[in-house]
Amino acid sequence: MVSTLVAQAPEATVLSDELRAAIDREIARFPEPRGALLAALRLVQDELGCIAPPTARAVAEIFGLHPAEVLEVLSFYNLFHTEPQGRHEVRVCTNLACSLRGARTLLRELEEHLGIRAGQTTPDGRVTLGHEECLGACGYAPMLRIGDRYHEELDGPAARALVDGLP
């Protein structure tokens, strides 16, 4: 269990001075420090790739929280990861508007093309494939995002070409 791991992580990760400073700047934007917890987790994940248990412990120390309180937040939100992801996150929207226009077939094609199932990462660590709930692009379906970037009005060949073009 991840929660056990957080509580038992022997030492907190040492965060860089730059990261600490960026977190302090976030804290200054809120009336109460804890308001910056999501922003801090995002900063940490952007720099380290994921928020592993020792890292969650380090964040807990900054905010004066129990590590379990950080885990509770971490596990509530879909965009936080406790394990490393591939260099590129490819997330196909599979909610209704996209599915009506073939999103689930498209996801299956990408699974076959990459030789992995949704939720897995290619053995070379290049791509993590997944599905996601509505990304707010229903009028331009089907679509996927690669990291922060949206790619809309796709079909199988276009989606495969996008994934093949990822370094």
Partner: peptide, 9 residues
């Protein structure tokens, strides 16, 4: 995040 809605974006 209501599925079907993309106006605010």
């Amino acid at each position: 995040s209501e599925p079907g809605s993309f106006k605010d974006r």
